[in-house]
Every structure is written in C-alpha cells, then in structure tokens.
C-alpha cells in the first residue's frame, strides 16, 4: 500500500519537473528577446510622437475646411485593429486585449483587422469579419507591412466601409506592468485648442494644409501602427516572462511539497517493515 503511493508521488514529481523545464526554457527565451524588443520599441517612438505633433498642427491650420480624415461622422460600423500575441502562455495578455475590445465595442457592429495568431483565431472563431488573416507574427512586422495595412484602412475609411478606426494594443509600462490601450486613429481628434495667450503661429503649407494633411496621413498612421506593434511585442514578451517566472517558481514549490510527502511515505514504509519484522521474531 505504502509502495503504490510512493510510486505515484514519484511520477508526479517527474511530471512537474518536466513542466518546469519547459516553463524555465520559455522564460529564458522571453528574457533574451525582451532586450531586443525593448530597443525596437524605443526606436519607433520618436517618429510616432513627432508625426503626431505635426498632424495636430496641420489640423489646426486647416481651420474650418473639411478634411475627410478629421471629420467625425455617425458611427455605423467600427474597425478595430487588434494586436495580440502569436502564442498563449503569457498570463492574461491576450485575454485582456479581447476583454477591452468587447467593453469598448458595446452594441456597435464592427470588423476586425487582427495582427497576431491569437487575435486571428479568436475573431474567426467568433464569426466576426476580419480584413486580413496573414499577419500571424507580431515580432516580424515591418514598416512596409504597416503601410500595406494602412492602405486598406484608409481605403475602407474613405469609401465608408467603416466610420471609425480604433487601435487596441498593449503598452509596455514597466517590466511588471503592461496596460491595454484603446486608441482612436480615425477620424483624428483635434487635440485641445491652443491655450489662451499661445502665439498663433502662421505656418506656410505647401501647397495647402488640406493636401499636405491628406498626403501625410498614411505615413502618420503607419508610424503609429508600427510603433504600437513594437510596443505590443515588448509587452507580450514581458508578460510571458513574468508568467513563466511565476510558473517556474510554483513548480519548484510543488516539487518541494511532493518530495516531503514522498520522504514521509518512504519513512512510513520502513517503520512498518521494521515493526513487522520485530513482531515476527517475537512470535
């Protein structure tokens, strides 16, 4: 009896150990990827912030003239760009993104432009229209790919296929925390009016603000998308590292507990044998 429980404990220790090996390997992979992805994220930031300022300035310069990228219209349909992971095992990383989208969408019908295999699978499973299924890898996304995606977005937006473009991704706050962001890309919201007393700058636009804005908008969007993808990938790797770190720790604790149990069972078996032998010799 004692022998069989010892055997089953031993088996469990083995299985936990092999799981721990996997989680530890994944943790190491994530750690080594983290540095590179963080660098890439940092390098993509200047463009995103500078182009944002320039676009805002151009919108102000347009004044009352209507530019389709800025004008808000009643939202009949939204387009969500969802940047999720390629794989799971990253704690709540993917789920948090989907939850945030569901909360934001409410009752408005929407289409999805998924990036990352998990996002593609999720929305195909839900039966929601997806614009593209080819971008399974967030890690390998290039600026060129972002331009192609943006082209589809701007075409769809200008044709009226959807009235709003919203980006859902995870931003890297620190190693320990990553936050889901829901940001509206189109129409572009003019940020606050220039503060009172602010010098009204007369900028010369060549040929004029509207055309400049129309020409530059795809660049701006592609820059935002690229920067978000880099940000999301760094977050994914960090989330995975944290998840695997705690999984490895838990596995270690579990093994310690099982070893204790195993030793007790072994001790129990020995004691019982001795008792039996002693009882036998006395008889």
């Amino acid at each position: 009896m004692a022998g069989s429980s010892m055997k089953s404990i031993k088996l469990r220790i083995k299985s936990v150990e092999s799981t721990m090996q996997i989680t530890r390997a994944m943790q190491l992979v994530a750690t080594s990827k983290l540095r590179r992805s963080k660098e890439r994220m940092e390098m993509s930031k200047p463009y995103a912030s500078i182009s944002r300022e320039a676009i805002q300035a151009a919108i102000l310069a347009c004044g009352d003239k209507s530019v389709p990228y800025v004008e808000a219209r009643p939202v009949k349909k939204r387009c969500y760009i969802v940047i999720a992971g390629e794989r799971g095992l990253a704690g709540g990383y993917n789920n948090n993104i989907f939850k945030a989208l569901a909360a934001d969408a409410g009752d408005t019908p929407y289409v999805v432009l998924p990036i990352g295999r998990k996002a593609i699978d999720k929305y195909q499973h839900l039966g929601i229209e997806t614009l593209d299924q080819s971008h399974t890898h967030v890690e390998g996304i290039s600026v060129g790919m972002c331009y192609k995606l943006v082209k589809r977005l701007t075409e769809g937006y200008l044709d009226g296929a959807f009235d709003e473009v919203v980006l859902v991704y995870t931003t890297f706050v620190s190693m320990m925390s990553q936050e889901v962001r829901v940001e509206r890309l189109l129409p572009v919201e003019p940020e606050s009016e220039p503060a009172a007393g602010h010098r009204i700058v007369q900028t010369l636009y060549d040929p004029n603000p509207e055309e400049t804005l129309m020409a530059v908008m795809p660049d701006y969007l592609a820059g935002r998308l690229y920067s978000a993808a880099c940000d999301a990938f760094a977050s994914e790797v960090a989330a995975r590292r944290n998840a695997m770190d705690s999984a490895t720790k838990n596995a270690g604790e579990m093994i310690d507990g099982l070893r204790l149990k195993y030793n007790r069972a072994r001790q129990g078996a020995i004691t019982q044998e001795i008792t039996e032998i002693v009882a036998g010799s006395e008889a």
Binding site: A54, T203, Y205, D206, E211
Partner: peptide, 19 residues
C-alpha cells in the same frame, strides 16, 4: 523634394510644412 518641387531650408526659415 516636396509635392511641388525641391525646396531648400536655411536657418531662420519661416514656419513651413510640406509633404
């Protein structure tokens, strides 16, 4: 090179923007 041709920027250029 901009939409309307080559432009040259020197110091103290007036505020300007072009695609």
């Amino acid at each position: 090179r901009t939409l309307t041709g080559d432009v040259c920027i020197l110091a103290h250029h007036i505020d300007y923007a072009a695609a």
